[in-house]
Nucleic acid binder design. Sequence first.
RNA 1: GGUCUGGUAGCUCAGUUGGAUAGAGCAACUGCCUUCUAAGCAGUCGGUCGUGAGUUCGAAUCUCGCCCAGAUCACCA
Length: 589
Amino acid sequence: MEQLTAILAAHLQSTHHIESVENLIQWQETRPEFEGDLTLVVFPFLKVIKKSPEQLGQEFGQLFLDHAPSVLAFNVVKGFLNLTIASEEFVHTLQQLSFSDLPKTGKKVVVEYCSPNTNKPLHLGHVRNNLLGFSVANLHQSIGCDVVKVQVINDRGIHICKSMLAWQKFGNGETPESSRMKGDHLVGKFYVAYDQEFKRQVKELLEKGLTQEEAEANAPILLEAREMLQKWEQGDVEVMDLWKTMNEWVFKGFEATNQRMGVSFDKNYYESQTYLLGKKYVELGLEKGVFYRKDDGSVWIDLTADGLDEKLVLRKDGTSVYITQDIGTALERFEDFHMDSMIYTVGNEQDYHFKVLFKILEKLGFEWAKNCFHLSYGMIELPTGKMKSREGTVVDADDLMQEMFEVAKERTSELGKIDGLSEKESHDLFEMIGLGGLKYFLLKVDPKKKMVFNPEESIDTQGNTATFIQYVHARIKSILRKANQEGLTTRYAGEKLDLESSEKELVKKLNQFTSVRMEAATQNNPGHLCNYVYDLAKTYNKFYTECPIFKQPSPDPQTVVFRLWLNQKTADCLKYATGLLGIGVPEKM
RNA sequence: GGUCUGGUAGCUCAGUUGGAUAGAGCAACUGCCUUCUAAGCAGUCGGUCGUGAGUUCGAAUCUCGCCCAGAUCACCA
């Protein structure tokens, strides 16, 4: 394509005296319904060259035919010049493709995701968050960045005290061991128990004649929780011990969940250690005149000139608010890593918060603030409505993964695909199919979109699913195993060969990988890669049916090797690309 | 009310800096397994791209108005 561009640019310069050709030359792939491989859009030239689209197309077509050996033929339809490219060119393209991480650029990116509270287990929302954050981190690594994966663990505050208090009141000394429950689920149970008790007390107070507001503010259990928070802040030994114990339970639970999901972190930040950090930077902001102090002593920033509001950054009693902590945490991270950019994977209900945060960091004079990105994603709702932890209407992450596993098991067994597999092999396969299906389902849609999760409909194994992609990989591997048995090589020597159209399509599709990956990484959208992988799998399947290798009549030896090579390259690409999404592909299924 | 995000086939979604007759999957229907894996392939059916204007050779894509849905505008986190 570079060659063709050069030829055209030279022609435009010498014949039509046009110097700046950058914006005029638009290449695109020829649509399947037309003859050809590569298409030049002629319309943009009409403004500078007074000819009809048809004439100009003919002129350019002839030019390529005369000067570019790789162009075999051309046709012009309306304002589109379609070129047929020689098979050698496709072989050459395929030779240059490899699927691995790009060389290091020295750019450092911090990716934050997960951010759980330690009062309840992870749910479907966290799953989307985790998968997005993890795959975006992979994508950046893939294009040559140094990536640091971090999570902030929300381990303090009134909501944590609530589950602690409920455990004290109703727990009877229950532990994960004694109850045989995962620690995070056990603690979550008491968070729900708190809420039930709270509601009961509110109801009681209402019956005594208090208003709803009064009742909610004076429920004894809430007052107790507040008292507990105060004790925590004072470092009360008993409360701290309970806090540490229950948090340990939860951390163990989270670790198990994240491990099964396949995500990991390089560093954890605990809010209990960072919640006071922001204060010293408030002083810095005051010195710089970015912040100002009101008469009552509270500190603010005025962002009205930037289209935002005034925002409090320090209360009049000198304590921090949410954004103060985030300022502190961001700067702490910069001390830790000196990153060039940072990605926050957080739900879209915090869009405004992050706009404000980035603006503040920028005004404080930090260069990297401009490269901060809020990877904002839409909420997941159930057919019955929103998920609410307190009311127990959530899709639990552990349950969900297990359900996916079970469905994969059932479906695979039905199809008789586990014959000849050991118990461990089939277990691993179910896990790969089940988890892969879940991951692909959540990653393929644009992160910005909210989604409705319907458990029955979501667990599909046909069509645009991970299973389909995994199946294609297994098919390829099966062919390559057979080739190996027969002692055939997959190294094509590169002699002249006429390619079938589905072979050409597959090479073209493989050739798109690099640009798709770049787009997915720079836009922080793994969905692009999902769509690509699906497309690739579909393109392969067409090639698979149209270009057999071991079927009779068998193709000539050179074609066999070429097709095996193409199989190998496709498998490499599928494995690498799905790996970036955190999805595994099996050797057999 | 202000700001942000979304609105594409019955359903779930793609659709690169504006490019050819708007694409997939699911669902419904029709063909194809004596073997490179049918979790597949080929095909039929299905659309006033929320709506009205504008910009131009050309608009799902850009601009403006309006309609619908969600989020947000806390000295909560």
